[in-house]
């Protein structure tokens, strides 16, 4: 199995792009391309990656690259796959890399359609938990309590009042061959999942937590630490679902959520009661992830 030490030197998502310092999604794009290599077609919808990945005529992508619009990633990559099939090119990997907004909100119809048809593509959602490209607006994947520019901290309301939408579970409900959650702070787990996705055929969905220093309000050198705490507090569970069997890949230390929240300016305004509510959410989330894992036969 590939580990971080075995990654090839060549890059198909090169440096020179214009992401913010410490950008989680930029780290992810580089890693994805190290695993998939030359024989790949990449689609990105409208999001930060579209913009920082290159403005014509300068592009960080060294593979065929395609963009059509914001809400249709899943069906565009399906269209690419069907055409490649007609051209007898079963050897090419077709990957869409979309944000949480382009996936959980505006893109969920196309995503659901392509998953139900079991299109032979890889859909990677980088979860930076808001619409960052347009200036940090809430998405349905933004966590409870988080400040964004559309959930501002005001006198009568402060932060997002709803909890995060659980898209991986929605994808499991589509009975696709492979669903995985990962985080850029757990590289070996991430690499294993990307490699597995590379081998499987049919619809593959990966949702990868990729912290955003600019939108989450933390110093750029803390991206990996913040991601690690998201997992170790239980805010984000690392699991995979493969052909009907679910496995949890990492047992969180269940560090109090406060340790995670206090690193980030987006949670600065939270009351004690809010923190407690999030701690309760984490407990429920972990229990229900475990229950789901048991139901799908992968956990004792």
């Amino acid at each position: 199995m590939m580990t971080i030490k075995d990654l090839p030197l060549e890059d198909y998502f090169t440096s020179g792009h214009t992401a913010c310092p410490g950008c989680g999604p930029a780290i992810l794009a580089k890693v994805i391309m190290k695993v998939f290599g030359k024989n790949t077609v990449i689609y990105t919808p409208a999001n930060c990656l579209l913009v920082f990945g290159g403005t014509y005529p300068y592009l960080a992508w060294k593979v065929p690259y395609h963009h059509v619009a914001f809400e249709n990633t899943a069906v565009c990559i399906a269209g690419i796959r069907r055409a490649l099939k007609r051209m007898g090119r079963d050897d090419v990997h077709v990957i869409g890399i979309a944000g949480d907004g382009g996936t959980a909100d505006i893109g969920i119809q196309a995503l659901s359609g392509a998953a139900e048809r079991n299109e032979d593509v890889i859909y990677i959602m980088y979860d930076n938990e808001a619409y960052m490209n347009t200036g940090i607006q809430r998405s349905s994947s933004t966590p409870y309590g988080a400040w964004t520019t559309t959930t501002p901290v005001g006198k009568v309301r402060a932060g997002k009042t709803e909890f995060k939408k659980d898209v991986p579970r929605i994808m499991i409900a589509h009975n696709v061959p492979y669903v995985a959650t990962a985080c850029i702070s757990f590289p070996n787990d991430l690499l294993a999942k990307l490699e597995k996705a590379k081998r499987i055929r049919g619809f593959r969905y990966l949702q990868i937590l990729a912290p955003c220093p600019t939108g989450w309000r933390f110093p750029p050198e803390k991206t990996i630490e913040v991601g690690r705490l998201a997992v170790e507090t239980g805010m984000w569970t690392l699991y995979e679902y493969e052909n009907g069997v679910m496995r949890i890949n990492h047992k969180p230390k269940m560090i109090p959520v406060e340790e995670y929240l206090k690193l980030q300016g987006r949670f600065r305004h939270l009351s004690e009661e809010d923190v407690k509510r999030i701690q309760d959410y984490v407990k429920r989330k972990w229990e229900s992830d475990l229950a789901l894992c048991r139901a799908y036969g992968g956990c004792e």
Partner: peptide, 27 residues
């Protein structure tokens, strides 16, 4: 002899054939 995509909307129908045509086939 063709690939038929029974997509879930017209928005997706046009999206699918845009990307298929961009890949290199008649749609």
């Amino acid at each position: 002899d063709a690939e038929y995509m029974a997509v879930e909307s017209e928005h997706s129908a046009m999206s699918a054939i845009i990307s298929a045509e961009a890949t290199g086939v008649r749609t």
